[in-house]
Design a protein around this nucleic acid. Structure first.
Lengths: 352, 352
DNA sequence: GGTAGCACTCTATTCAGTGGAGTGCTAAAG
DNA sequence: CTTTAGCACTCCACTGAATAGAGTGCTACC
């Protein structure tokens, strides 16, 4: 109703300390109980020593700034996405993990076993200790080096290409060729590739092959092109992730709407949107938090996503994190995601 | 209240034709509308030309036999699991698929691409056309034959074992050895295995290796044992399945209870129970239907599972099917599952 | 600026009342 | 003996009113 500002203090974007403490209490309490928190509660339980009436005044200011909102006239206040943002950015006191907890996690994430398996473990760990959904992007390496190539002839002009990269991953693919190749031809081709390009990364390999092909006649290049395409395709593919503990999300009251839940799960299956979000975190360098509508995806409206990139040999190769309701325990979740990212990087490096 | 039988007709387990027709109508109508069906409705809409009162009498008989039940005194009747059973076994008239539909399905399930991919397509197809959850067990082959073995030495006494089986699947695994092997040792071992056992199934391979080892000194057997274990492990492993369209289940009213939904989804993730159920169908030989509580698993109380085994080269190697609410369109679902099983078998055979 | 008081709003819950759907039983009709 | 009409009864789903409780905004006072 008032067109001009009545309270200059309410309009100033900088919160005074008291208002900040109030916001902090409201967010913490709402995270704890899931109920709108009213002025009485704050006056009674918070360290602020103020009457409900005063609290109400400050609350009104916070509401005007868009940090809290009330579901209806006579309910308490609930943090908005913006409110959570301020809370997370400048009010939160994270509780670091204890030594024993870290040791515990490291133990579970032992570098034995295949890389894919380690990712799954990490995802399961995240979901288990946070009681949210855990997500781990599979590492995308810029430098994929060929370690070994093998061709196996199948029936009907088809060849099974097997390529071992970076000492770990085994990729395979069936290609169709225009003519049958003999076993010795295949061996010769594989032998050539292995001799010339073992240990060299795929960009170099492609480059080398193109030059080679221009220089010589196009002898048996079909195989090599196919092999190359296979790997470059899978290396610059869309990416993928391992999800765990989706069902945890069903325990939260804000997810009790089956229709919304369905949409969320479909987004998980579709993968595209989630991947896009993780990709953004890949480019950032540190813990990243998307709160509610900030993510830009409707299905994540009531959700927050906390991510951290993880590294192999100093390079960021992937992202992991958790997905849960906006009303999550950021103070616990953030360090957990942080530590897990470090541990995963370490575990992956050790297997090399 | 009555200890002795009052109506002998009500107690006779054999339903007369009229009662059967009534049951049929009730089940069909309930499947269509999801609402308890009352005597008025039957009298009005069914081909039986009887008054509501008569219908009520027959309904009471059906209820006494446990074929229908009423949620409360003044609601209509709802089929019980037992009622569905009778319906499915002896009242159902399945609507076979049209030529064009079958052609359509066959087209989608083209044998190009990797086997795993074909399974995923089949599962997605099932879920899409039935609007239920589709499930396809990965084939378990008794006769896994070695096609090619390769050893690659890694750092720190570790060896990457790659085995190509049955011309298609590529298995790989890292094993830890007690001492480092040179590249030539590895090549020699692989060469020996390939020469001696290519094309022979794994049982024979194991047998042969054991004999060999007893005859000679235990030279480099560690590698071979590892290779063998790897494959036999993966071949007689618990089994696995590909699930699609779980989210479809969230659309059904009987699944609106979030807690039950959670338990169901956890069962999907856990895989054990579902696999056990599929395993049973593997032993049976034809379409198999588990209705509600029949499955023996609490989480599937309100669900039915329709399965059909599929074959490769005449042998049953797996099972596929759908999972949905007991209130599903059996007349459509059954032929779809049936046809898909046949098409999947055909597609898998063609890729060999 | 902080506080007390007060009128007001909105929700959630309870309760009674009502209409409708459907049943079981009984007695009569076929 | 089977079928049907009639009737009393039960239960649910819905409505509207009443109520208690929580919380607010505003105003006036300290």
């Amino acid at each position: 109703m008032t067109q001009t500002s009545t309270h200059s203090s309410a309009m100033s974007l900088a919160l005074n300390e008291r208002a900040r403490q109030l916001l902090k209490f409201v967010v913490e309490r709402y995270i704890r109980d899931g109920q709108p928190v009213g002025s009485r509660t704050v006056s009674r339980d918070s360290s602020l020593d103020l009457s409900p009436a005063t609290i109400r005044n400050i609350m009104a200011d916070l509401e005007e700034m868009g940090l809290v909102a009330s579901p209806h006239t006579s309910a308490g206040r609930v943090p908005t996405a913006h409110g959570y943002r301020v809370f997370v950015d400048s009010l939160l006191t994270v509780r670091d993990l204890g030594e024993t907890e870290v040791r515990n996690l490291r133990h579970q994430l032992s570098p034995a076993g295949e890389p894919k398996r380690i990712l799954e473990t990490a995802s399961a760990m995240l979901s288990e200790i946070t009681a949210l959904a855990g997500v781990v992007m599979v590492p995308r390496r810029e430098q994929v080096a060929s370690r070994h190539v093998e061709f196996l002839g199948l029936a009907q002009n088809r060849v099974l290409v097997i390529m071992v990269t970076n000492e770990k991953e085994v990729q395979n693919r069936i290609i169709h060729t225009s003519r049958p190749y003999t076993q010795s031809e295949l061996q010769q081709a594989a032998g050539y590739l292995n001799e010339a390009f073992t240990g060299r990364d795929l960009a170099a390999m492609r480059q080398g092959l193109v030059e080679e092909m221009q220089a010589t006649r196009e002898h048996m290049n079909q195989l090599m092109i196919a092999a190359l395409e296979m790997v470059s395709e899978s290396s610059d593919s869309e990416g993928d992730y391992v999800l765990a503990g989706q069902t945890n999300l069903m325990n939260y009251a804000e997810m009790s709407n089956v229709e919304r839940l369905r949409q969320l799960f479909e987004a998980f299956n579709r993968k595209r949107d989630i991947l896009h979000l993780l990709d953004q975190s890949l480019r950032a360098n540190g813990i990243q938090i998307f709160i509610g509508e900030e993510s830009g995806y409707d299905v994540l409206d009531e959700c927050s996503v906390v991510t951290a990139p993880y590294t192999m040999e100093g390079n960021v190769v992937g992202v992991l994190g958790v997905i849960g309701p906006t009303r999550m325990h950021y103070d616990r979740v953030i360090p957990i995601v942080d530590v897990t990212a470090r541990l995963l990087g370490a575990a992956l490096n050790q297997t090399r």
